[in-house]
Design a protein around this nucleic acid. Sequence first.
DNA 1: CTGGGGATCGAG
DNA 2: TCGATCCCCAGG
Length: 205
Amino acid sequence: MADFSFELLKRRIPKQHYCRDPFKIAKEELLGAYLCSKIDGVLTAGKITELEVYIGSCDKACHAYPNKLTKRTATMFRQGGCAYVFFVYGMYNQFNVVVGPEGQADAVLIRALEPVVGIKEMQKRRQTEVLENLTTGPGKLCQALGITAKAHDGVDLSGNLLWLSPNIQKYEFNAVPRVGIDYAQEYKDKPWRFYIKNNSFISRR
DNA sequence: CTGGGGATCGAG
DNA sequence: TCGATCCCCAGG
């Protein structure tokens, strides 16, 4: 946070960076990067503190396993650098960053942010004042930034509607099992959830 | 802990 | 066509 500046949010993570190894992208590029939205002229942004990696070819927790192309999963097969947003549980949206080359259905689910810009607007959208409750969950952060499957699935993340600005330092992180995937058999305990150490903006307490 | 809420997709 | 299930959250 100390290094944050509004100038930074004008930058974009370069497109070619999204085609590297999904785990490298998640840990080195996406942790600490800034997720930004500008909706009806209102800028909101948060620093990514927690995320999970999903691999379409082998990972039983992934919507696209085993490389299953459906209407819903189609965006995951696109070239890295666009958003995969889906609607769940009748009322929530979840935001993922599509990674890897075209044809490879890998994605990084963003699970928590540290609110940075547009906090007033986030409080209004979330109907709460409490900072720690604005963006500490995949459904919450979509609500806070105004992200919906309808409006944002497939959106290019180097554009001006919904985008990612690069991190400006490396963060130490923990690696633990992912949330809510009890059905994924041998993949349910893989430590593919990563979160920044010593940051209080983390999902699930 | 409980239950809401709607899309998804595979079974029949 | 139907319905169990789903990468969740607010409230009690």
